[in-house]
Design a protein around this nucleic acid. Structure first.
Lengths: 225, 225
DNA sequence: CCTACCGATCGGTAGG
DNA sequence: CCTACCGATCGGTAGG
């Protein structure tokens, strides 16, 4: 194997090591793998370093401490969440705002499941040294505004009931957040949410239910739909 | 201080130690304190033992390992959750089933906030050695049935739209679960949910919204409520 | 980027 | 119920 060719440089460490320049991103990826598999308590700088194939002191070249790695993951997560919702919205651009609210909900749940590591870090109650990560706060606000702007538009255009946009947004947010959480924490029977299509249908059906109401419509007792 | 009286037995250890017989429950209480404050990763047998005022080997007299403590907390949590919802239901016995669904939702959110430690353990994705904690599974099923039976009754009586009870239940569950999670993970502005009355109003308003629908009623464009 | 080290904490066991 | 110990892991730093 090593006999052919001249000037052979044996690859250092194992094959999965990231010897290229982007250790920072490699550490984020490693952290995500730990998070998705074992939850927040499985994330450690040392384990991430090991996964990336470097010594446990190397991460400190890129992150001042563990909190900084967590913050970097969270910021990336917010941006991906925003993009995920916007991608769903782009696929139904121009449609009724109720349709678009559902699309955002579908994107939110898809993100939770497909980026469980990011999702747990973002919303898992991590506390950061205040004022230390301004771009993180900005990214979080941007993600919230995707939903919030949709709801505002719906209220203004008369397609959603009048009310405080933040209150209506919180209702919609709670529903998709709860569904996402229940799925990744395995509190929903796995068979119900095994495929992306199943999860899409579930998220869309539930947000539709929120829009139309759980109660039977008065006057048309229990027959419609 | 020690001079008066005869045969004085100095109290062992610190004042907060539980020297009475119920170390088992004391350890559960200690574990809950750790969980509520620092999340799942803050729970350790050793820290719980220290809080209870015993050596770190003592817990093994009552729990075969850490998982057993977690399972005990989870089971107690499910029973408290069931009772919490039933207490809310008892306060509106005989009322319309829509009112009772809201009451169960209020109870669920109240439990999440007031028993954050229990709540995190129950739904935090802890995995148990399969088949090892049958009473835990039973307690979980009982809690789920409170909501599920209500929804079934609502469908049967025609007050809720026709449909799969499990599907409608999941929608309601997701909403209150999401709200509870967002609150305890501090993703809702604290000022909005500082008091029990605020949280009650929020939970009730949101479940009402789910019942009545987020969409404006057709034919009565943007004016009612 | 490394090795080597620090003090702290963890789950769990031995042995009494 | 205790002390004493095990091996493992953690965040972080020194020094190169």
């Amino acid at each position: 194997m090593l006999s052919r060719g001249m000037s052979i440089r044996v690859t250092r460490k194992r094959a999965d090591a990231y010897q290229h320049g982007d250790l920072r991103h490699a550490l984020i990826q490693a952290g995500l793998k730990l998070l998705a598999e074992g939850g927040l308590s499985a994330l450690s700088l040392r384990a991430a370093a090991q996964l990336a194939g470097v010594s446990h002191a190397a991460p400190y070249r890129h992150f001042r401490d563990k909190e900084a790695l967590v913050a970097a993951i969270a910021e990336e997560g917010f941006r991906l969440l925003t993009r995920r919702m916007q991608d769903e919205l782009a696929a139904c651009a121009g449609a009724d705002v109720l349709v678009r609210v559902r699309a955002a909900g579908v994107g939110y749940v898809a993100f939770a499941v497909e980026h469980a590591g990011h999702f747990r870090v973002i919303f898992g109650g991590a506390e950061y040294t205040p004022g230390c990560y301004p771009t993180l706060d900005e990214a979080g606000g941007e993600a919230y505004r995707v939903l919030r702007d949709l709801v505002s538009e719906g209220i203004t255009s008369g397609r959603l009931r009048p009310g405080d946009p933040d209150e209506l947004s919180l209702a919609a947010w709670s529903m998709v957040h709860g569904l996402g959480m229940l799925i990744i924490d395995r509190n929903v029977p796995p068979a119900l949410v095994a495929t992306a299509a199943q999860r899409r249908a579930l998220a869309e059906g539930m947000t539709r239910l929120l829009e139309e109401g759980l109660a039977a419509k008065p006057g048309r007792p229990g027959r419609e739909r």
